[in-house]
Each structure stands twice: as C-alpha cells, then as structure tokens.
C-alpha cells in the first residue's frame, strides 16, 4: 500500500532528503512540498493525502497551527530538530516524531509503523482515496468493544468522542469507554445529523452542547476545543438566531 503525502518544510535540504527517502522506499508518493502552512492548507483544501510530514517551526504559522486548521485527520509525522515539541506532539496525537537530521533507517521504521497502523485500523483508514466506509444503519444505538465485551451505547447518551492516538474515548454522562479504533473511523460512521467533528481530536454530540465560549464548547462540565478549520462548519450547523 503506497501512502500519498505532502512535505511541509521550510528548509530545502531537509525537504530534499525527505523526498529522496520517500522515492527510495517506494512506499510513499510525494504530492507536493510546501515551505509554509498557508500554502499547505491551500493544497489540502483541494486534495486530501494520507500523510503529512510536518515541520514545526516555520515562518508565519507553525506546524501545530496547521493541525488546528485541518478539516480531516491524515496521519502526521512531525519533523523537527527540537525535542521540546514531543509533549505537544503527544497532545496532538501525531503518529510519529522524526528528529532532524534523521537517517533512511529511521524514516523507514516510521513508515512501516504507519502502514501497520493503517492496516490495523481497517480499510477506512488505509488511503485518502479510499471511499468512505458505510455509515452505520440508522439505529439509535451502537456497539463498541470495550472492557473485554461489546457494550451497547445509545447515541443520545454520548456526549463526545475524544481521540487517544490508536484509541477513541466515548464519554457519556455516567461513564467513559475506551475502544481500539481511530477518530477517523468513527467520524465516517457517526457524522451526520447529531455528531460533528469540531477539532482534530474531538467529535461532539450537538444536542449535548451546553454553551460555547470563544473557541471552547462546554458539554456537561467538559471543555472541548474548537479547531480553526472546524469553526465555520460548527457555526453553520448551530441554530443561531
């Protein structure tokens, strides 16, 4: 399985190395190289890719701001020479982190890991070109695998879903459940009348929103950030009088 990718990197030598490694591996197809976040977002607005190689410190907006603005969830590999970003990387659920300069061996390890993750996540996760998985039948419930059993959840009980790297947390008023899946998978199955993706790491049940203050949604005492790229969509979906 060949992954499509873009490189977002302001240092030409670093981008050239990455492109060379992608070509050598024959596992990744480079669709473009962008020196800044704005140009990358413009491209992603028109074409989706499976994977982003993303530098953090660039002129203008930084890599994390790009992640805030994304309207879908590609795999992300941060490429930076600063180890201090590791914590942010964890918070943003990036798939891997390559410290520049990195060797082909380290690059290949990252790609093989991504391919494994994509394969485990099932066909819906495999490539950006793959058609969306079938939505769930229009039931008012769903089953998730958690706590070594299949648990039935009423959709109306779900407050929101939070991505936890290779897991998704379902939050209900009574309890939270963690299941092995990706938010992208859930997004394809749940998004519709009631559920809306409001951030790279969150899908929220619109019916459960108590209020919105600035860029934060409040749901039964929980605070959910609104990603820049999702704000317009959210405003369209709300019945604002």
């Amino acid at each position: 399985m060949k992954l499509s990718c873009i490189i977002v990197e302001d240092i030409q030598i670093a981008a050239d190395f990455l492109r060379k490694f992608c070509e050598k591996s024959d596992l990744v197809e480079v669709k473009g190289h962008f020196m800044n976040v704005a140009d990358a977002l413009e491209f992603l607005d028109k074409e989706k890719v499976d994977l982003l190689f993303l530098d953090v410190e660039m002129p203008g907006a930084n890599g994390f701001e790009l992640l805030d603005s994304l309207t879908y969830s590609p795999m992300i590999v941060l490429t930076t020479s600063k180890t201090e970003y590791a914590f942010n990387a964890f918070q943003y659920h990036v798939n891997d982190y390559l410290k520049k300069p990195f060797t082909y061996k380290r690059f290949l390890e990252a790609i093989e890991k991504l391919q494994q993750q994509a394969a485990e996540a099932g066909p819906a996760q495999q490539t950006a070109a793959t058609p969306n998985a079938s939505p769930l039948p229009d039931n008012d419930f769903l089953f998730i695998k958690a706590e070594d059993k299949l648990i039935k959840l009423k959709k109306d009980d779900i407050l929101f879903l939070e991505s936890m790297r290779d897991y998704v947390k379902f939050v209900t008023p009574a309890k939270s459940y963690i299941t092995y899946s990706t938010l992208k998978n859930m997004e394809e199955k749940l998004i519709g009348q009631t559920f809306l993706k409001v951030h790279r790491s969150y899908i929220v049940n619109i019916n459960k929103i108590d209020d919105i203050r600035g860029n934060t949604i409040y749901v039964l005492g929980n605070q959910i950030p609104i990603g820049k790229g999702h704000k317009e969509d959210l405003e369209t979906r709300l019945n604002i009088l």
Partner: peptide
C-alpha cells in the same frame, strides 16, 4: 532564536552535531 534554529538544522545535515 528562530533564525538560529534553522542554522542548527543545517549544521546537522553536514555532520556538525556538536555545533548543533
């Protein structure tokens, strides 16, 4: 700091890991 960050990365690609 930001400008030096870029130079630091460049030094790495030619083997100046101590200068990095």
């Amino acid at each position: 700091g930001t400008s030096l960050h870029t130079c630091k990365t460049l030094f790495g690609y030619v083997g100046f890991t101590d200068l990095q």
